[in-house]
Design a protein around this nucleic acid. Structure first.
Length: 911
DNA sequence: GACCTGGAAGTATTC
DNA sequence: ATGAATACTTCCAGG
């Protein structure tokens, strides 16, 4: 990423696009979130009578990812009450902010003509919005609100890096970020809107679209955007202009010096001025400030400030903020609708529900005018090093939860799962390139996301954004953005949402000395969120992240990747052969087992023996080395990785050493490898397990309840602190330590909790979202079973896309029947608690795996005290400073996902 | 002709 | 400070 600085785009079939953008991106945070939120949660009424329809998504286009809502018969509609009842979850009254303040209006809603269209279904948007808006807190000027929407298409890129509100927006919603917003818009980041790119549209209706969609538009023609893009306008021009290589993308890097005043950081300063200017140049706050002013129109700023709910956060803390802020809204959100009840698969015409206007609007969107779902990259100042906890206040933000918030994948009857994971590699494309297609599933087809347990008929909004895949907290990825796929695929009914767009390093500016963050940070995860309105008017937000996806060409070709491991635990004696399946294994590949201390230091490292003769590009046989401490009394979690040489190592994988005398519980049937592989007294099933270490980054507190929404911050911190495999094994590394624990917010003490899901459910006001109408009839026709999807641009969410899903029509087949049982089971509290929200979803193939195999399921093992017993000398090795990052960074990612909504299910597919 | 992809050359950074 | 190794971007070409 760093060097050349190009932007890569990932194609996701989603209608969304991923962009390789700065780190900042992801998170989108906050600022927008107010706006976003409205967009995000489409509160559109669901047409679908019931989810029973849920046909097996599979049946539908396999190629498209499907998000389906599976109604759970067991649960009455309206869990909301239930949820509420449970103090566990934190729900906000629809119109009231957590802090008690009325919700702010979402600019987009007002502006967008779109709303009008939906009014039937979504009246509440308007109504709520306005009502919700606290008079006191209303932004001084509505104009402000609109700004986000105004973003230029490319916005992501367009957004001036500094301004990358998008990320915030994405996070938006509540992201701590926003809270950070302090009135003085000192940091560009805080004010995405400021980006020059944003240009108001003349027509009201159009405005709406544009605002929301602007970004999208840019996506379609990223290259064209340059002129419009804020970036160009930015000071960098001088150096930017120099760059001929790239079209003047708005994204030109470092536009920080918006004012034209170049900071010392400017590329020009680099010793070897590259034509493009060194991407890496980081912008200082000062720089930002200076620049920002330029863009910041007073009005906008004021508005933003007004919106800001929490000023507690220090923007500066965010370590790497990339200048390249893509669109303000990082999470472009689209809404997917499930088809209206009664409609037949594929036959449903988008127009059915839509009024002519709506329909036209929708079409407009489809054509690309609408923001092509351009997800802006959140620039989020995500704090790498020191995550800040959210203040209660920020939490209260009415808008949707910030993208950097860790949310559970299931709560109560609901569970959002990725039924089909995306391929481990997906080369993202730069803006200078054409789309590389949507993200695909490893077995062909597209990733599938499904919401289980949703019986309501109201459409839900599905949010998608590209998240990080390192061992830190999940947050919007700074270098990649989701973008809508343009071209033929888009026409398909399935929601081809997104494509992954890689942003050039150069476009991303670093802040405060962070200069390398972007380099090799090419691993991403697709993150899906669903916001489920509760009967009480609150909204329950669930989130699920995919397995990591390597987005760079190089990493895909060279870096070893472990997709599965035949064994995930074994007695300390070791000696057993473990089969690793994945990619890029070499005879010289080494497998290193590592035990990390809570602080990340390596407590123990051991190179495992590998069977070179058995080594194949896709499989590697390794002998589990004996653990350093043969006397452990409880399971100990360690990691291992495959190394093909310097800088070529896989991500950490999880492995658990069991006490020598503990009987092994065989959970999985041995598979492929079994016969040959089995060895040792304790014969374990060898069935491959796939558990990317990071995949489970987010560990939920043992006691979910303990983590309140309000407590997000604390949770996040925990995550941040956690060692890299959080997701898979919550208990890894003495999580009990403070970092992992959720600290109840004084204010919210026990709000939360009941949710079985590992994550902390967030209940928010009902977000208002703009619903984009279904695509043209013909489009819908393509999708047989898929429900209509209306794409929305959620102005507020730059990073990701949102789609509103409508429940399947009753008539629709219920293919999923067979699946349901399974799903329901999976929803069991136990399971959920174990997995945590971000748990990765194993491919269906592996679904049957018993929980036991999951590291998480293991009893908490780690006894640090045991270390003392260890007979084996312990070598404490401090990881290289950047180790974390290196590991993380190794991945290169580019992923694209398409989202398709299937009729049966509620939500949508991604592919 | 528009898209997708895979490959690889050119350039920026880092070692 | 220089050169090699890496990693990032941009191009190209084939399907």
């Amino acid at each position: 990423m760093s060097g050349a600085g190009g932007e890569q785009e990932f194609d996701f079939d989603f209608l969304f696009e991923f962009k390789h953008s700065d780190e900042g991106g992801g998170g989108g945070s906050g600022q927008h979130y107010n706006y976003t939120s409205s967009n995000v949660n489409a509160g559109l009424p669901l047409n679908v009578a019931h989810s029973s329809l849920s046909t097996p998504c599979h049946g539908l286009q396999t190629s498209n990812p499907v998000i389906s809502v599976v109604p759970s018969t067991n649960h009455p509609a309206g869990y909301g009450g239930h949820i509420d009842g449970g103090a566990t979850e934190y729900y906000l009254p629809p119109n009231i902010r957590p802090n008690g303040a009325p919700a702010l209006e979402s600019p987009r809603i007002e502006i967008t003509s779109y709303m009008g269209l939906h009014h039937n279904n979504n009246q509440f948007f308007h109504d709520e919005v306005e009502e919700a808006i606290p008079n006191a807190k209303r932004p001084p000027s509505t104009a402000t609100l609109n700004l986000p929407n105004i973003e230029a298409y490319r916005d992501p890129s367009c957004l001036s890096p500094a301004s990358s509100l998008s990320s915030r927006s994405c996070n938006s919603e509540a992201s701590s970020y926003e809270s950070n917003y302090s009135y003085p818009y000192t940091s560009p980041q805080t004010s995405p809107w400021q980006s020059p790119c944003v240009s108001p549209k003349t027509t009201d209706t159009e405005e709406g679209y544009q605002r929301g969609m602007v970004a999208c538009t840019l996506l379609n023609s990223p290259r064209h955007s340059p002129s419009t893009s804020p970036r160009t306008s930015i000071t960098e021009e001088s150096w930017l202009g120099a760059r001929n290589s790239r079209p003047p993308s708005p994204c030109n890097k470092r536009k920080y010096s918006l004012n034209g005043r170049q900071t010392s950081y400017s590329p020009h300063h680099s010793p070897t001025p590259s034509p493009q200017g060194s991407p890496r140049v980081s912008v200082t706050d000062d720089t930002w400030l200076g620049n920002t002013n330029q863009y910041t129109s007073s009005a906008i700023v004021a508005a933003i400030n007004a919106l800001t709910t929490d000023s507690t956060l220090d923007m500066n803390d965010g370590i790497p903020i990339k200048s390249r802020k893509t669109a303000i809204d990082h999470t472009p959100s689209m809404t997917l609708k499930t088809e209206p009840a009664g409609e037949e698969h594929g036959t449903i015409s988008p127009t059915a529900d839509l009024s002519p206007e709506d329909f036209s609007s929708f079409q407009h969107i489809r054509k690309g005018n609408f923001c092509e779902q351009y997800l802006s990259v959140p620039q989020h100042p995500y704090q790498w090093a020191k995550p800040k906890s959210l203040s209660p206040t920020s939490y209260m933000s009415p808008s949707l939860p910030a993208l950097d918030w860790q949310l559970p994948s299931h709560s109560g009857p609901y569970e959002l799962r990725i039924e089909v994971q995306p391929k481990s590699h997906h080369r993202a494309h730069y803006e200078t390139e054409g789309s590389r297609g949507a993200v695909k599933a490893s077995a062909g087809g597209h990733p599938i996301v499904q919401l289980h347990g949703y019986l309501e008929s109201e459409p839900l909004t599905l949010q998608l954004f590209i998240g990080t895949a390192d061992d830190r907290l999940l947050r919007p990825h700074a270098f990649y953005q989701v973008h809508r796929i343009t071209g033929k695929t888009v026409s398909t009914t399935s929601l081809t949402l997104a494509d992954c767009l890689a942003l050039r390093n150069s476009d991303i500016e670093l802040r405060k000395g962070e200069t390398d963050i972007g380099r090799k940070n090419t691993r991403v995860r697709l993150v899906f969120r669903v916001h489920i309105p509760q009967s009480n008017g609150r909204t329950l937000s669930l989130q699920v992240a995919s397995n990591p996806i390597e987005c760079s060409q190089r990493s895909a070709q060279e870096l070893p990747l472990v997709e599965k491991q035949s064994i995930d635990s074994f007695p300390v004696i070791g000696g057993k052969k473990m089969i690793l399946t994945g990619h890029n294994f070499l005879q010289d590949s080494k497998v290193i087992f590592v035990e990390k201390a809570p602080d990340g230091h390596h407590v123990w490292e051991m190179e495992a023996k590998t069977d070179k003769e058995m080594c194949k590009p896709n499989s590697l046989v390794v002998e589990i080395p004996p653990f350093r401490n043969q006397r452990i009394t409880s399971p100990v979690q360690v990691n291992f990785y495959v190394c093909n040489g310097k800088r070529k190592r896989s991500q950490y994988q999880l492995f658990t050493y069991l006490p020598a005398n503990v009987p092994i519980i065989k959970t999985e049937p041995t598979d492929d490898y079994e016969p040959a592989q089995t060895c040792g007294p304790m014969n374990q099933g060898l069935s491959p397990l796939s558990k990317p270490y990071y995949s489970q980054q987010i560990m939920m507190p043992p006691d979910p309840g303990s983590c309140l929404v309000a407590g997000f911050a604390s949770c996040q911190q925990r995550n941040a602190v956690m060692s890299p495999s959080p997701t898979t094994s919550p208990k890894l590394h003495d999580l009990s330590s403070s970092p992992y624990k959720c600290i109840p917010n004084p204010g919210h003490g026990h709000l939360g909790l009941q949710q079985p899901a590992g994550g902390v459910p967030t209940i928010q006001e009902v977000p208002r979202s703009i619903v984009v109408h279904p695509s043209s009839p013909e489009q819908s026709s393509h999708i047989m079973l898929q429900p209509q999807v209306s794409q929305h641009l959620s102005s507020s969410c730059p990073l990701g896309y949102q789609q509103t899903l409508y429940p399947n029509s009753p008539s629709s087949p219920v293919p999923s029947v067979t699946q349901e049982p399974t799903y329901l089971q999976s929803c069991s509290p136990t399971h959920s608690s174990i997995m945590g929200q971000q748990q990765q979803q194993l491919p269906k193939v592996h679904r049957n795996e018993s929980p036991t195999n999951q590291p998480l399921s293991l009893p908490e093992l780690h006894e640090e005290s045991n270390h003392n017993l260890a007979p084996i000398p312990v070598t404490i090795k401090r990881e290289p400073e950047e180790l974390d990052q290196m590991y993380l960074d190794d991945g290169k990612s580019s992923a694209a996902v398409e989202v398709c909504v299937q009729p049966c299910c509620s939500i949508s597919e991604f592919s």
